[in-house]
Design a protein around this nucleic acid. Structure first.
Length: 862
RNA sequence: GCCCGGGUGGCGGAAUCGGCAGACGCAGCAGACUUAAAAUCUGCUUCCCUUGUCGGGAGUACGGGUUCGAGUCCCGUCCCGGGCACCA
């Protein structure tokens, strides 16, 4: 075979990638009134120094196939790509090497762009965005101004992760188990003035509007849990010998009669005032210890409860009983009121605490017998205060002489009744709480968006005017931390000096920068109008393109990115700047691609460069120990990372794309096996040879001719399956069907030219380079990107005769050919007339016959 | 601990509404072509019993149930993956 005539991806792929780029084949047309619009979005990548890994192209290939398919179906498709390029790695690199993050970032973007283009994705490259471009972040700063004007941005003294050894503040993701990821130094909590965004003001809407989104249920549930809405009551407890009351939040007002103590968080403002003199030393020591612990320490060591008694008592408002007030760090200042009433009999945490400190456990709820049995708990133990019952049941010992009696009521009714009583008596009120906290929006970092803010000499916090944007990142000499906890921007010299253009008043610029999430909160809006220097986007274009119809990306962004973006979008909606309540109508998470790894008999993973094969069995190359293969997250340490560049160099982009889609369902976790690429590569070679002869021209077997009925059936079955499966993103089964097509046609002579052309169009979204090349060689002078998608003929799918299975007592006994549309009664007759069937029945009495049209007949005998 | 996913051949996976389990691909085996290899093509390939054909049996993590019929529905158990985790 001549080189000329063989399938050569290395030659045809760059050719078509250049063609698409030069002809702007995939340009999206703003405001096209003739075609329906479709906005398909990929989560844009952080351009890391390591380059693309095989996980990125999975989602990108899926959306690319979908977009190419939809264009052929007449949609005006917006499909853009960009770079989420602010972030820590480039800055760390700058600290270590002195290379400006700008240089690293540009170089990495260059590499990412090259890699992404090498897959032949159909992006509209005229819409590329880069979050670190001042023409982009100018508008990120502008949105911050809008948030501020709506009262949603404020300064607050908030603890940060301060690492004394590194002399810097760390992001949460840089802290694990209370120590720095780099260097493993201890990290403390230290208060610092920070910008906060009031996402809590949108908690209810962020929760409610989830219901209408076409998102995976699991992701919606994670967001619901993150928002963490609960309903209950605030209850005021009088304090003995003091005027202040302590207000607690509880979801279980029904258990008030079982409250035997109270707990204040160590940071609670009333602690000092309430503590009796002889307890002061112990309380002070405890509070100091708690302050030193990070949040993680406080929550992680969940097992052992600690606490100190204040010496003070409060009064239970339902029964006027005296109960002790304790301080313990199992109560968090940030949730509810920072104080709780403790009901050890019906709350496991309180039970643990009470047991440890010898506090009374008073059961006031008789457990539901069945539920208790299911939990393997004895009701008697609960009633005696020896066991804790947080579940359902009926209230007991819960009445006072002031009109509250909830005895006998189930939990829900008792909650309602108690809350009403509290409200009527001015002792409490119905209350809603959310776990969601306001968003800490400051980072003490260089490589991020500067805030459009200055602190004036007269103490005013000045929010800059829109006309002063963008606030450019200044040049600095070195990127090392200041050692004071301030951002490297604190060393930016003249840049720090701000002069009000109108009044000439002086001030110092904000040195904090925005977190990486900022740029990704609105990039989908900038794609709509990426070159606009007069506004963030044109509202007419926004109204045309929004919402995003399909958003594909990894589940690791389930909560933060997607929640933050939804929050900003809702604010923009309230400001009348966007036309939809939600940004992303439909969301799909691609499953992670795992690498093949090995572990020894004790289960310890062995890096791949320590593995060799003897007799096809993996063994440790040093010890010779036999190893077991297992799929594991790709990582440098396991040496199981697959580099897409190498795969493309060996097999081509079309094979890579096809393999990633053929591996399994898009949403499932799947292990990468390079051998599998060979399978789809073989398939593409067969496709090539099915249509192109050894001389590189259309093979002589391919010509206009009648198809056999079977060929016709396979062709139309393929159109149908590929259409349906592409629509539903089930690419793996679409590819299977195309393989079946090739198995059927590649051995046939002659091969219908019409069938071949149809097939090329079906395969084109999946393997666009090879299909464009074949299409051209078939004599077309234009890209197939806008060819009409093939339609199938329902009548060609129908079979006249079908094989019907005859079962006797559910066991297959015979297969007979019957007309496809045969009536059940006739099928029954035909089945009973069959010789093999009669033999299988063997004269036994027939009790029942179940004919299933077109499929089977089951004969039930005695 | 709680909340989501998921357990099907040697491997990745398929199976419409409860109707022939294992499509398609990988790996393997046998054969064809070839001086030879690669490439390509053809056939076989869930397991067990049976020399083999014929034939029979078992089988979708495990144990029950519903049904003429269960990978699919219901109850319980185990295992794997992900998320949350003192949120009162």
């Amino acid at each position: 075979m001549t080189k000329h005539g063989a399938y050569d991806p290395a030659a045809i792929e760059p050719k078509w990638q250049r063609y698409w780029l030069e002809n702007k084949t995939f340009r999206a047309e703003d405001l096209d009134p003739l075609r329906p619009k479709l906005y398909v979005l990929d989560m844009f990548p952080y351009p890391s120094g390591a380059g693309l890994h095989v996980g990125h192209p999975e989602g990108y290939t899926a959306t690319d196939i979908y977009c190419r398919y939809k264009r052929m179906r007449g949609f005006n498709v917006l499909h853009p790509m960009g770079w989420d390029a602010f972030g820590l790695p480039a800055e760390q690199y700058a600290v270590e090497t002195g290379t400006h993050p700008r240089i690293t970032t540009d170089r990495n973007i260059e590499n990412f762009r090259r890699q992404i283009r090498s897959f032949g994705f159909s992006y509209d490259w005229d819409r590329e965005v880069n979050t670190t471009d001042p023409r982009y972040y100018r508008w990120t700063q502008w949105i911050f101004l809008q948030l501020y004007k709506k009262g949603l941005a404020y300064l607050a003294e908030v603890p940060v992760n301060w690492c004394p050894a590194l002399g810097t503040v760390l992001a949460n993701e840089e802290v694990v188990d209370g120590r720095s990821v780099r260097g493993n130094h201890p990290v403390m909590r230290r208060p610092m003035k920070q910008w906060m965004l009031k996402i809590t003001a949108y908690a209810e809407r962020l929760l409610q509007d989830l219901d209408d989104l076409d998102w995976p249920e699991g992701i919606k549930e994670m967001q619901r849990n993150w928002i963490g809405k609960s309903t209950g009551a605030e209850v005021d407890f009088a304090v003995q010998d003091r005027d202040e009351a302590i207000t607690v939040y509880t979801t279980r007002p029904d258990t008030l009669f079982g409250a035997t103590y109270m707990v204040l968080a160590p940071e609670h403002p009333l602690v000092d005032a309430l503590t009796l003199p002889e307890h002061r030393a112990a309380i002070a020591a405890y509070r100091e210890e708690a302050a030193r612990k990070s949040d993680l320490d406080r929550t992680d060591l969940a097992t052992d409860k600690t606490g100190v008694f204040t010496g003070r008592f409060a009064v239970n408002p339902v029964n006027d009983e005296r109960i002790p007030i304790w301080v313990s760090d199992y109560v968090l200042m940030g949730y509810g009121t920072g104080a709780i009433m403790a009901v050890p009999a019906h709350d496991t945490r309180d039970f643990e605490f009470a047991t440890k400190f010898g506090i009374e456990v008073r059961c006031i709820l008789e457990p539901d017998r069945a539920a208790a049995a299911a939990e393997r708990l004895r009701v008697e133990d609960v009633l005696a205060g020896k066991a804790c019952w947080p579940g359902e049941g009926r209230l007991i010992r819960s009445a006072n002489d002031r009109g509250l009696n909830i005895n006998g009521l189930p939990v829900e009714a008792a909650k309602k009744r108690t809350t009403e009583w509290l409200e009527q008596n001015g002792l409490g009120r119905f209350s809603v709480n959310y776990k969601l906290r306001d968003w800490l929006f400051s980072r003490q970092r260089y490589w991020g968006e500067p805030f459009p803010v200055a602190y004036m000499e007269d103490g005013e916090v000045r929010i800059l005017d829109e006309s002063e944007l963008p606030v450019l990142l200044p040049e600095v000499e070195d990127f090392r931390p200041t050692g004071t906890g301030e951002s490297p921007l604190a060393k930016a010299g003249e840049w720090l000096d701000y002069v009000d253009p109108k009044t000439g008043k002086r001030g110092r610029r904000e040195t904090h920068t925005m977190p990486q999430w900022a740029g990704s909160c609105w990039y989908y809006l900038r794609y709509i109008d990426p070159q606009n220097d007069r506004r963030a986007w044109d509202p007419r274009k926004e109204a045309y393109w929004m919402p995003v119809d399909l958003y594909v990306g990894g589940a690791e962004h389930a909560v933060l990115h997607l929640l933050y973006a939804r929050f900003w979008h809702k604010v923009l909606y309230d400001l009348g700047l966007v036309s939809t309540k939600e940004p992303f109508r439909r969301l799909v998470n691609q499953g992670m691609i795992l690498g093949i790894s090995y572990r020894d008999t004790r289960g310890v993973p062995v890096p791949n460069d320590k593995v060799e094969f003897r007799d096809d069995k993996p063994v440790h190359c040093e010890t010779g120990e036999e190893l077991e293969e297992f799929p594991a997250k790709m990582s440098k340490s396991l040496k199981n990372v697959v580099n897409p560049d190498e795969v493309i160099a060996q097999y081509g982009a079309d094979s890579f794309r096809l393999y990633e889609m053929f591996m399994g369902p898009l949403r499932a976790v799947k292990p990468w096996q390079t051998r599998g690429v060979e399978g789809v590569s073989r398939f593409l070679k067969r496709v090539w040879r099915m249509i192109i002869g050894p001389d590189g021209r259309v093979a002589p077997e391919v010509r206009s001719c009648e198809m056999t009925p079977e060929q016709k059936r396979v062709l139309h079955a393929t159109i149908k399956k590929v259409t349906d499966d592409t629509e539903s993103l089930d690419f793996n089964t679409a590819i299977s069907q195309m393989m079946i097509f090739v198995n059927e046609f590649s051995r046939a002579t002659p091969r219908s030219r019409e069938a071949m052309e149809t097939f090329v169009l079906l395969l084109a979204p999946f393997a666009p380079h090879i299909c464009e090349e074949i299409w051209e060689r078939l004599g077309h002078d234009r890209s197939l990107a806008r060819e009409a998608w093939p339609e199938y003929d329902e009548s060609a799918l129908k079979l006249d005769q079908v094989e019907v299975l005859i079962q006797v007592n559910g066991k297959p006994k015979a297969r007979i050919q019957l007309p496809a549309n045969m009536k059940p009664a006739d099928m029954e007759r035909a089945a009973l007339a069959d010789g093999d069937v009669r033999a299988a029945i063997g004269g036994r009495a027939i009790r029942k016959v179940i004919p299933v049209p077109g499929r089977l007949v089951n004969i039930v005998v005695k």
